[in-house]
Design a protein around this nucleic acid. Structure first.
Lengths: 199, 199
DNA sequence: GCAAAGTTAGTTAACATTCGCTAACCTAGA
DNA sequence: TCTAGGTTAGCGAATGTTAACTAACTTTGC
């Protein structure tokens, strides 16, 4: 469990990264943000890497259990995808500063232990999605003229870019509301339907 | 115009970044890669930032003219989108080391002059795409039950994630061939067709 | 009164960049 | 043609800055 001070440090780190990028995430800036001296940080975290680990754990905890449930429910595949992403949007909406951390690959370069943790999170998301799409395809609910893995790339890619756009707009629009629209659009595209033509 | 040595430095910088990330892009590593001393770099570039600018210019030159042509041609919108991305894949395929540079937002944080240059490149791409989609929609060639801007996010997002996947696979698959497949899938999704249902 | 949480004042390492110097190579002009 | 002056591209050493982190001491709250 984390002490209040540790939580404060993690929160400040998240804000720093989202404001100034990875390069802005230094112990000096961090301590300035909180209002204590640099060495004081080390009373609460062994090293900078341990702060990063704590950040990842926050995300992991936030999304824990969010995925297995969706896989096993007997809702329509489409509905499950909706819920999956709606929940992600909710997490981001609550802690916008998570976005640049989770979506930044540079942050963890060189820290092979951390890369694994990031890929664990991302991979879980993608595999769950492919699984759901495949089920939807065999239920005749999702079009099967396009491979599940391709649909997954399309859906994930769209959503990633969408979230990035939100980030670069300085979180200026309502990600939950706009996200709903995007999901709706995606639904239209992947829904099983009759096409007049293909190439 | 660039001297041969300048070209060599830019090329080495690109390779460094793609291999070791931004953090690996130091004057020390750069000089080691080329086989000259650190100060010698400064005989050819005023500063590190100027090397980054040169990198962006390489990309800009590579994609110059690639866009306006597509806008004005009288090919079907779908075909123009295909060509647009096929050409992008060709550029990446020729210089894979461009990918992590162009797709990294962190690299240019703090350098407000450079951010502008990156957005110029990215923005041009996106606006061209929206333009083409709109034309396709009014020609009844592309489905218009989804907004052009949403389709653009979906297409761009898919392609970005696809290129990133290529990068993380260590450029292990044929981006031109696999890219063709993805474009084909996208075509199926956005082609004008009859849908049985929506919502 | 003692342990947790803070401080000041360092350390070491890495970074971009500058300095003073040199060897090799043009290029005028006598 | 040869030589003085200039240029180009390199070098090792040093500078100033900033990073993560540490040692030793003080404060504070139970």
């Amino acid at each position: 469990m984390q002490t209040p001070r540790q939580k404060e440090i993690v929160q400040a780190a998240l804000e720093l990264i989202s404001e100034k990028g990875i390069q802005g995430f230094t112990i000096k800036n961090l301590s300035k943000e909180i209002g204590i001296s640099e060495p004081a940080i080390y009373r609460h975290f062994e090293s900078k890497v341990h702060i990063l680990i704590a950040i990842l754990d926050v995300f992991k905890q936030n999304t824990e259990g969010m995925f297995k449930q969706e896989l096993e429910g007997d809702l329509p595949a489409m509905e499950r995808i909706s819920i999956l992403f709606t929940r992600n949007f909710e997490v981001f909406s609550q802690s916008p500063s998570l976005v640049p951390v989770i979506f930044s690959e540079e942050l963890f370069r060189g820290e092979s232990g951390l890369i694994g943790k990031v890929y664990e999170i991302i991979g879980r998301n993608l595999n769950t999605l492919i699984q759901i799409i495949k089920e939807g395809q065999s239920n005749n609910e999702i079009r099967n003229d396009v491979e599940a893995s391709q649909l997954a790339v399309i859906i994930m890619g769209s959503l990633r870019l969408f979230v990035k756009k939100w980030q670069y707009s300085d979180y200026s629009f309502d990600i939950k509301k706009e996200g709903k629209k995007l999901i709706k659009s995606l639904k239209r595209l992947i829904h099983k339907g009759i096409l007049t033509d293909d190439e």
